[in-house]
Amino acid sequence: MSETILKISVDELCENIEIDHDLVIEVVEYGIAEPIEGQSLAEWKFDPTSVHWLKKAIRLNKQLEIDWIAVAMVIDLLKQREALEYKNQNLQRQLARFWESET
């Protein structure tokens, strides 16, 4: 079974979020968003997760007026936190199943 992945072009991304291509290049350079496809800017495609983090990054930059290096660090920490929460939820489900099977 093949998995369908939604891909968003740079032009669609820029139009949707109302940013310019230079900003896309900058956030990619800082690792805030990563294209899932393409070698050049015109060919880049992004997944919805990258768009989600890009929107958060732009909000942090504009609302808190922090530079892109700091934004990249904050986004990295938020991604780590999200991954840990997901792992914790899975472990809690496994533990609950274990306790149910023991009773």
Rank of each mutant, 00 (worst) to 15 (best):
S2N: 05
S2V: 04
T4Q: 11
L6M: 14
L6Y: 12
L6I: 15
K7H: 11
K7N: 10
I8P: 13
S9T: 15
S9L: 09
S9C: 09
S9N: 04
D11R: 08
D11W: 01
C14M: 02
C14L: 02
N16F: 07
N16T: 13
I19V: 14
D20R: 08
D20Q: 10
H21I: 12
D22T: 13
D22V: 11
L23G: 01
V24N: 02
V24Y: 03
I25V: 15
E26I: 06
V28G: 06
V28H: 07
E29Y: 07
E29A: 11
E29F: 03
Y30D: 12
Y30I: 11
G31Y: 12
I32D: 08
I32K: 03
A33C: 14
E34K: 05
E34V: 06
E34G: 04
I36F: 04
I36V: 15
E37S: 09
Q39M: 00
L41V: 15
A42P: 00
A42M: 02
E43M: 05
E43I: 00
E43A: 10
W44S: 09
K45I: 00
K45A: 01
K45E: 09
K45T: 01
F46Y: 12
F46H: 11
P48Q: 02
P48Y: 02
T49K: 11
T49D: 14
T49L: 13
S50L: 03
V51Q: 06
H52F: 15
K55N: 07
A57Q: 04
A57G: 14
L60W: 09
L60I: 10
L60M: 10
K62D: 11
Q63F: 08
E65I: 09
E65W: 04
I66F: 10
D67V: 06
W68M: 15
I69M: 10
V71A: 07
A72M: 02
A72W: 05
M73H: 08
V74C: 04
V74W: 02
I75S: 03
I75E: 03
D76R: 07
L78I: 02
L78Q: 05
L78D: 00
Q80P: 00
Q80Y: 01
R81G: 13
R81A: 15
E82F: 07
A83C: 10
A83W: 02
A83L: 13
A83V: 06
L84F: 14
L84E: 13
E85Y: 09
K87I: 00
N88F: 11
Q89F: 07
N90Y: 10
R93E: 11
Q94D: 05
L95H: 01
L95W: 01
R97P: 00
F98Q: 00
W99K: 11
E100T: 00
T103L: 09
